[in-house]
Amino acid sequence: MEHLIDIVLLGLLMITGFAIVRMKSLLAVAMLTSIYSLLSASLFVVLDAVDVALTEAAIGAGISTILMLATVALTRDEEKAPRHTPLLPLAVVTVTGAALIYGTLDMPHYGDPAAPVHQHAASAYLHDTPGEIGVPNVVTSVLASYRGYDTLGEVTVIFTAGAGVLALLGYRTRRRNIQGPGIRKLVVLRVIAKLFFPLILLFALYVLFHGDYGPGGGFQAGVIFATGFILYALAFGLGNAQRVIHHPLLRIMAAVGVLIYAAVGIEGILLGGKFLEYGVLADDPVTGQHLGIMLIELGVGITVAAVMLIIYYGFVSRQD
């Protein structure tokens, strides 16, 4: 059964991918991309990667699609045909693909328990996490502690994106509340949005604090939090949204999140340990790990939420 879903999903992905190549309408392409992302998220669930699925759904299908739609709205909708025949690209792609397929021939089989990936470090993570970190979700323990430094890098990447969009698109605060006449008429949407808004924020907090036990964590929470505001902005106008969270605040939030994370790391040094060593944060190492993970997830969440909104504001404020 699992395999069947797998095959079907992969097939659908392929169809979507080809459709994206062929389609000329960029609006349609953006929507198809969203579908592609959602399909991958489903596939991730089938492949037991629930955390990834949640993130892909929120980031890939959610935020990315919004950005694409915003860009399509700003640029021309239709794609022009390429000037050159695509022979060279086709050749490059064929060669690359052939190389990769050649590489698969010696790969361990899909799902093979004897594959090296399941032997070395991975089994240790699964084995040691309960004792060393005390968190059931091993993804969280690896993400936040064993490879916490990658995650710091990841937050920095997001922060970079925020700073970059700030530099490229800037922001304009709206005095007047510009709102499409279309949306004003959509009473249903506005009512639903109003209902959903607190629920989404609540769910974000749940995802943030429940990340130790189930799928979720700072990233997903941050994105969901931002999505709530984006929905609000869509339904009630950018001006209103900006009145709730205005731009300078977002800048501060984006910076503070990274700083919280780094501060936890430096605190480890100051307490006589290594950088990002959470064990020294409390008397009991496991408690220290808990504390550390909680704090850094918070930092991640703040930065991600802030940067998502900075990016969104940046794109939307260009629509004049």
């Binding site: 920095t156 800048r251 501060i252 984006a254 700083l259 780094a262 290594k274 950088f275």
Partner: peptide
């Protein structure tokens, strides 16, 4: 203590200063 953590600080100090810079 700081000296033994030099490899990490070499990267972390500019990293931390980036958000600080944004706040200024």
């Amino acid at each position: 203590m700081l000296l033994s953590n030099l490899p990490a600080l070499q990267v972390v100090i500019p990293l931390v200063s980036a958000p600080v810079c944004l706040l200024l």
